[in-house]
Amino acid sequence: MVGRLVDASNVWARDTFSRGNWRLILFCYIVLAPVLALFGYVRMGPIVSSLVLSFHKWDLINPIKPFIGWSNYAELLEDDNFWLSLKNTAIYALLTVTLSTLLAVPLAVFLAAKSRLSAVYQTIYFLPVITPMVPMSIAWKWIYDYNHGILNYVLSLIGIPAVAWLTDPGIALYALIIMGVWKVIGYNMILLLVGIRNIPSTYVEAAAIDGAGGWQRFRYVTLPLLKPILLYVLVTSSINAFNVFTQVYVMTLGSQSAPGQAVRVLVFDIYQNAFQYFRFGYASAEAVMLTMIVLGFTLIQFRIARNKEGQDG
């Protein structure tokens, strides 16, 4: 149906176009001009510039910005801070994405049935998604507080000694992961839930009539049909996880008790190279690496989605 409408509009458009209606084309460009100008200035331009910048030695003080080829990239590969931040970010992304998806799948299955209770639970689980990151990071910092935090209090009730959640370098990353899972689980749940609801009920009913139990219906009917959305959830949350910054900045930096080096993530490293060391070219090379990682995830998604289509056809 949608396809037909789009076709119809194209036929119409071609007709007017062939009449040589230059006024219509002019109208299109007049309406688009401000949008395209904005797009070029705040999106397309900077993206191209970051690539160009990454091949230059660019600092705020020196007026000469020489082209230095791949030097920034070569230096980056030797930079311990870069590797440390890449490692931390990768661990953060891997664990946050895996845990939040593993928890969101049963949640979505359980809440897929339409009911008043299901709607209430959806609202509750979605709440963290809508809350801004800075205040919630401060709230979590208070929960993780070594002396007065409610988490250490709960642990003390079951005999576990106080944990230095945010100041112990070996633990801070995992404290951030717990909060990351809390923040994103509702988003993943909603996407999966819609995916499950879109599966024709006849499939599941047919399996039930054939004698498939609850687990079998999930394993052989729901899960395979959910794969494209599961893939989408994994890719989008991986991309988001690789851009982690705000909670790291608020929870592990800035205050007197902060260890500073404890959790160095990629965006923080970019931020520091650019705005504390004023090495804009070098930071741009690092930013290009971040883009490449994100692009990689997207390509994997396209690849798998296309292979799937190939098999089905």
Binding site: P46, I47, L53, N243, I270, A274, F280, A287, V294, T298
Partner: peptide, 24 residues
């Protein structure tokens, strides 16, 4: 072409082009 350009740049994270934007 224009629509594809807008769509394709949507996946590039803001954090990776904020530096040139700051210079602008």
């Amino acid at each position: 072409v224009l629509f594809m350009a807008i769509l394709a740049t949507a996946i590039v994270p803001f954090e990776s082009y904020m530096i040139p934007l700051y210079l602008q």
